[in-house]
Design a protein around this nucleic acid. Sequence first.
RNA 1: UGGGGUGUAGCCAAGCGGUAAGGCACGGGACUUUGACUCCCGCAUUCGUAGGUUCAAAUCCUGCCACCCCAGCCA
Length: 547
Amino acid sequence: MEDMQKSRNFIEEIIEEDLKQQKVSFIRTRFPPEPNGYLHIGHAKALFIDFSMAAQYGGECNLRYDDTNPTKEDEEFVDAIQEDIRWLGFQWAHVFYGSDYFDTCYDLAVSLIKKGLAYVCDLTKDEMREYRGTLTEPGRNSPFRDRSPEENLALFERMKAGEFPDGTRTLRAKIDMASPNVLLRDPALYRIIHATHHHTGDAWCIYPMYDFAHPIQDAIEGVTHSLCSLEYEIHRPLYDWVVEQCAFSQKPRQIEFARLNLTNTIMSKRYLRQLVEGGHVSGWDDPRMPTLCGMRRRGYTPAAIKDFLSRVGVAKVDSMVETAMLEHCVREDLNNSAPRMMAVVDPIRLVIENWPEGKTEDILLENHPNMPEMGTRTVRFGREVFIERDDFMENPPNKYFRLKPDGEVRLKGAYIVKCVGFEKDGAGNVVLVRCEYDPSSKSGEDARKVKGTLHWVNAADAKAATVRLYSELMRSETVDKEDLLEQLNPNSLEEITAMIEPALAAYAPGDKMQFMRIGYFCADLSNTAQMPVFNRVVGLKDSWKGN
RNA sequence: UGGGGUGUAGCCAAGCGGUAAGGCACGGGACUUUGACUCCCGCAUUCGUAGGUUCAAAUCCUGCCACCCCAGCCA
């Protein structure tokens, strides 16, 4: 037939063109996180692209820790990163460490020195900045630029041997101090750092810079397409310079795409750390965090995240995606898999006055209205039940389908009840609603319909549970990085005690379910039968205008 | 004021000289023992802007405007 050709994003176009022109025959990509923090949804976009491009063209993707700066990295993050990638459902071909290539990097640096393309520079950090010039003025050559290869070799060897303190010397590429691209003004290739590296220990005291190490790592691994975010666009000439001057025959190609930004979300690692260390969240896996471990704990599913990422697409425009899109994706996924349960999040009592004291009745409830294969369960119904405070109003607005004086409503799966009275406490809050039920209105046995249906929990066997209602961490759509803490949403976590149907207490940590008419929830890691804890993943859509 | 990028609806995003896909959001309706789900319908006479080329321009050309990135011995 005339199947609509699925449109290709620009990276797919490049890859297909490279394949067609036989520039490459096997696609290899890499996901190169620096092990200095937990992965977040922004990384997920990058790795989603890295892994899916490789998979789509029958190639492979490596996981490579970009660990060239021992002062910022820690082994702590290495395992967590793998766990998150696996959780999303991706499998790498190999795990590499950038530090595995330190010997090669060193040798290549030596070869650059021999070719007169790199030199040891004694300028201090401040001096180097001064010599670099500005965006509009060219820089000046370092006074050490013309050292002989022999002298450079000797000095570089002594740097490696640990003879010089941190910050006293660097190895620099000899490119062009007048380049309009500031990155090409003799960039540092190596710096001295006397620190223990989490992976190589004390083997080295000089470490290659990202701009030198990354293209080398890519080339060694045979990466064909090195996908990264837009801010590296300006690094590409340097990337290509390194590949060229180090004489790699197979040249990896760097392609840049826009990183993900989400409304009401802060993504930068530095600020996330600030939230964790300042105690503004409970940890990296706080369900409000955009980290993958946080989203996992919140109850987001890999399928929902991947669906979201594919909907967002791949392009070069700086964009800000609405969180609503993400929420739509979890709802869609959970709608098809989450059993429907009843929990009353803000309970008040409802008494059925014409229901005999002590009498109970078993109610059969479907676990999913659209999926009979999910089975049924039995719930006890009695004289007294809990209903939501919101589901009764003394003076309701128009089109209020819930309980009101003299109004009728069905209790889900049970009977139609009519409000015959209510009681308030001293503060004027309704604490009890009095009803009478219609014995002929048993669910499934009666054609009579009422507009509203309420969820409920039988008071005699309801269990208490802690329910955490999460909302966005940041109160405005965009976040100004200046005064982060003032922009925090003070109400991003509301913890309440809810009354739940007994079966809910048996759910294991990580299980997801729908609290009927409320939202999708996930049993928290700390969930126990004694005191169940549920996190709200996302609320149900609510089109009631009076709300 | 230098260089590198990017501008299509409220938000993403197709489009690649032949007359503006799709999704989210939003609005209206049907269905409903979840105000959910599902299903219909609506939602850019116009593509940052001003000109030019062409029978024909979001697509090509020129100018202008806006926004993002770069002056780490971070990645």
